[in-house]
Design a binder for these strands. Structure first.
Lengths: 110, 110
DNA sequence: ATAATAGGTAACCATTTGGTTGCTTGTTGC
DNA sequence: GCAACAAGCAACCAAATGGTTACCTATTAT
């Protein structure tokens, strides 16, 4: 129905293969397509499609370096989702933060 | 490939209609199927399917009350994703938390 | 120059997805 | 009891998704 930016992000994150690619980039940023294919069962073309979707969602940015295409993770969309959407539902997180604040304030006694 | 619990959650969150249903439940918890259909363009059956997916992902729990089925939001899966997955990528959030901790510790001076 | 390497494009395929319509079942109110 | 209301079930459908194979282009190394 709506086609805002966060929709692309949610859709991109929906696929486990794409989340694994993000994991790999988080472990080692700036990998080439070939690097990212290593050990995967699917074809290079399939991986390229997934990376294209991650790029369209702005979760990954890429730069052509010679004959290689290097991929870099972009944390901003995930951050925005965490801020604008998840915090709304994740009350425990907020209360945990309050709890931390209280516990730290309690540390004044020594 | 893997079919763990968080996979169902990510898939459930991928659809904008389902996110809207969660929004509505967040605004007013415990709504019936009929309530949740109000104002929507799709049919009751379509909404029921979406709710079934949300229930399968444990994002929503329901209870039959007479001839109505009441739906309640369950924040735990979202919390777990925030903790186990998003925080890994969302460095600003972590540093903001550290900043808070430091700023609160700095309040010891009075 | 040319072979090898890294990646891009395109057509195609099976399955999943998001939705519909039509009908059945369960629960209340009169 | 029975009409009206709330939800469930099932078949079906078009479009999107995730993947493949086959071939093309660009860059490097010898």
């Amino acid at each position: 129905m709506q086609a805002d930016a966060s929709d692309d992000v949610f859709k991109a994150l929906a696929d486990p293969s794409r989340r694994r690619l993000l994991d790999r980039l988080h472990a080692t940023d700036g990998q080439s397509l070939g690097d990212l294919c290593a050990g995967l069962t699917m074809t290079r073309q399939a991986v390229a499609k997934h990376l294209a979707i991650l790029e369209a969602a702005n979760l990954v940015v890429s730069k052509r370096k010679g004959r290689e295409k290097l991929h870099f993770i972009n944390p901003i969309p995930i951050h925005e989702i965490a801020e604008r959407w998840i915090s709304k539902f994740d009350q425990p997180r907020l209360s945990a933060l309050s709890a931390l604040k209280r516990s730290l304030e309690g540390e004044n006694h020594d």
